[in-house]
């Protein structure tokens, strides 16, 4: 091929551009830390990393929901736990009351005051609020879920928030189900049993009744139907202790339901955290420049550039003009 002067210079300019572009590209990669400088560098990787970022953002948001929900669930579990503990103490006293058989009125009066105090305590626990939000009144958060006499005045509808796709957990609870309310009287079953005991003691003290009624008196109970878990909506005619036990068992049962929900959150959290780490790894693999690779490439480009300049420098002196005097 015939080599013309212009061709030689064109070649230098062309290759010089190529090398400078390479140097610019790897410098930008190292400076920005990114391999994908524009979406068209790798369309599939760009879109994949966009999707992964969306998933990670979702996980982060769900994570914040979870922290809040877990706080609510922990509080709810604590409240139910203290109700159970109080209930167990009361139960011991009820059994003592039933077994003793012969109690004088003074003793009965002491027990009566104890029962009334415990009832107030239980209702207070059931009316627990986080900030100004009552958690056992369902969606009705601004008033106390239970009146002083144990009547439920909350809602059956609950507030739930999503903590994962398709998984929703409570931030307020239907007190009628969680605390156990007798749908016939709309009162908390535990406190209704206590009321009955107190009533019998009062009447015995007043002389209009006898303490013996404690063993014979019955209460009609119909539990609130929880559509998800409890199919039992029969009316039960049970003795006081049995009624109390139904109420107490109900609270214990729902304490464990909340415990399960807390477990769900913890499981989801650890899965999400793992997923987030995996996603981040993949995003980084797709997007980030491999520093060692980019630096090696930069050095290669620099070397080629230097070689080009040096070759140009040597060749430009090769001309017949030098010999024309």
């Amino acid at each position: 091929m015939r080599i013309t002067d212009l061709l030689r210079y064109d070649n230098y300019i062309k290759n010089d551009q190529i090398r400078q572009n390479e140097i610019e590209k790897y410098t930008r990669q190292i400076a920005s830390g990114k391999k994908l400088l524009s979406p068209s560098d790798d369309t599939v990787a760009t879109v994949a990393s966009l999707r992964l970022k969306t998933i990670n953002q979702d996980i982060e948001r769900f994570g914040r929901n979870m922290d809040f929900v877990q706080n609510v669930l922990d509080s709810a579990e604590t409240q139910l736990d203290s109700i159970v503990k109080a209930g167990q103490e009361i139960r011991v006293e009820i059994i003592r009351l039933l077994n003793t058989g012969v109690l004088d009125k003074e003793d009965a009066k002491v027990l009566r005051d104890y029962f009334v105090n415990m009832k107030d305590y239980i209702i207070k626990q059931a009316n627990f609020k986080i900030g100004d939000t009552a958690i056992f009144g369902g969606i009705k958060t601004q008033t106390d879920p239970f009146a002083a006499d144990g009547t439920y005045q909350g809602e059956t509808k609950e507030t739930k928030v999503p903590v994962a796709p398709g998984v929703e957990l409570n931030t307020t609870f239907n007190g009628a189900v969680y605390i156990g309310v007798n749908s016939l009287s709309n009162k908390m079953i535990i406190t209704e049993a206590i009321d009955k005991i107190v009533d019998i003691i009062d009447r015995a003290i007043a002389g209009t009744g006898s303490l013996g009624e404690l063993n014979t008196a019955t209460i009609n109970i119909k539990k609130y139907k929880d559509k998800d878990k409890d199919k039992d909506d029969k009316i039960l005619n049970v003795k006081i202790l049995e009624a109390f036990d139904i109420g107490l068992n109900n609270v214990m049962q729902y304490r464990s339901v909340i415990g399960t929900q807390i477990k769900t959150i913890q499981d989801l959290k650890s899965i999400n955290e793992k997923n987030q780490v995996f996603n981040n790894e993949l995003i980084s693999k797709l997007e980030d420049a491999e520093a060692a690779e980019a630096i090696t490439n930069l050095q290669k480009a620099q070397l080629a550039y230097q070689a080009l300049i040096s070759v140009f420098n040597q060749n430009r002196q090769l001309t017949l003009l030098n010999f024309f005097k």
Binding site: S32, P39, T46, R61, N65, F68, T133, V161
Partner: peptide, 30 residues
């Protein structure tokens, strides 16, 4: 492409996601 280059800060992919996700914060406490 420069207008839609989310990796380098343009585009609105993450803003769209943030818009929807911030509804979550309101759901917890309306």
């Amino acid at each position: 492409e420069t207008i839609f280059n989310d990796a380098l800060g343009t585009g609105f992919s993450s803003d769209l996601n943030t818009f929807f996700n911030s509804i979550n914060d309101m759901l917890i406490k309306p």
